[in-house]
Simulated assay, not measured.
Amino acid sequence: MTSTPVQNTAVTADDGVRLWASRSGRGTSGTTPLMLCHGGPGLWDMSEDVAGMFDDRATVVRWDQRGCGRSEPCAGPWTTDCFVADLDAVRRHFALERPVLLGHSWGASLALSYTLAHPEHVAALVYVSGTGIGPDTDWHGAFEENFLARLGEDPQRLARWRELPGESRERAVLQWSAEFVDRDRAIEHAERMADPWFPINFPCNKALNAEAKQTAGTSALYAACQALDVPVLIVDGAQDTRPRSAVDSLERALPRVRRVTLPAAGHLPWVEDPYGFRDAVMTAAQ
């Protein structure tokens, strides 16, 4: 939990959709603010603990992407360009000129897209647990195998996951439990992700994943990353079910990149190695 006052507010996107956002921390005029982009797509911000790691040093802003979580229900549009515009609306609302932008999982892809579109408004990009810029075939098959193997360490959990409907909170908790290396605490960690619980936005998920498959691996994306003049920190959990080799494509393309791999962490590295994660991110925020 954050140790400083939290300001929750509504941000109006360019097309009038209202987005939930939150600001916390002890930022001053001499510190670089931090903006967080949650994963999904179709989920909501679960990074209160991440904000709490840095609120003694910086202003921290987090938000729920459109149509998700505490943001206003809407019918889209579900495009990366629209989400980039929403992120810029949040940045402008809080008058953040050049924050450090930290994206997790699909949010890492969104943060990268924003940085490519608006490099003048990003002091540094922290790319956490993403899947790189290569084609989906580079990693998705291995991810599915790793996921089933980890969840299948408890056959009852795997069987229960398979029988539950996709919109079930219990199914999500079981699925998210595979993200953690510590199997004894995996359900506990996943329950924390699901509290509070909101409906998963499946149309958003489907549309943005389909768009990502079309753009990943393209020469235009590689060229844009090769020309990016913004420092990037890649943070991996070595035990992520998504193969970390997928991120090599991004690391090779970027001219100003550093990479930190936390050996005992999974897809949410701040949960299983909070000190290593904080130390890594603090180097990007300096």
Rank of each mutant, 00 (worst) to 15 (best):
A159I: 07
P135T: 08
S168E: 05
L158S: 04
P135R: 09
P165W: 04
E145I: 13
G134I: 06
G166P: 10
L148V: 09
L158M: 07
P165L: 09
T131S: 00
G134R: 06
Q156S: 13
W139Y: 13
W161I: 00
E144H: 15
L151Y: 06
D138C: 08
N146I: 13
F143V: 03
I133S: 05
F143Q: 03
P165A: 02
R160C: 00
D136I: 01
W161Y: 13
E153Q: 14
N146G: 15
P165D: 04
H140R: 14
E145F: 02
D136G: 02
E153I: 02
P155F: 04
R160A: 03
A142M: 04
E167M: 05
A142I: 01
R162T: 08
G134Q: 05
E163R: 12
A142H: 00
R157T: 00
N146A: 14
R169V: 10
L164G: 01
D138P: 00
A149D: 12
E153S: 08
W139V: 11
I133C: 08
T131L: 01
A142Q: 03
G141V: 11
L158F: 15
E167D: 15
A142F: 02
S129Q: 11
I133D: 10
R160W: 03
R162S: 10
L151H: 06
G130Y: 05
G132N: 06
R157H: 03
Q156C: 00
E167W: 14
N146H: 15
G134T: 05
F147R: 10
G141H: 08
W161T: 01
A159L: 06
R169I: 13
R169S: 05
G130D: 01
P135W: 12
E163S: 15
T131M: 01
D138Y: 02
F143N: 00
D138Q: 08
G132V: 07
S168K: 12
G134P: 07
F143G: 00
G152R: 03
R162I: 02
H140T: 13
G134D: 10
P135E: 11
S129D: 12
D136H: 08
D136S: 02
G166Q: 13
L151D: 03
N146L: 15
A149V: 14
D136L: 06
D136P: 00
R150G: 02
T131V: 03
F143R: 04
R150C: 10
P165V: 03
N146F: 08
P165I: 05
E145A: 14
E167G: 10
G152Y: 11
L148Q: 07
G134Y: 10
L151G: 01
I133P: 15
D136Y: 03
T131K: 02
L158V: 11
P165G: 08
D138W: 00
F143W: 09
W139I: 07
R162N: 10
W139R: 04
A159G: 05
L164Y: 01
E144L: 15
D154A: 07
R160E: 05
L164C: 03
R169M: 12
A142K: 04
E144A: 13
D138I: 01
L158A: 14
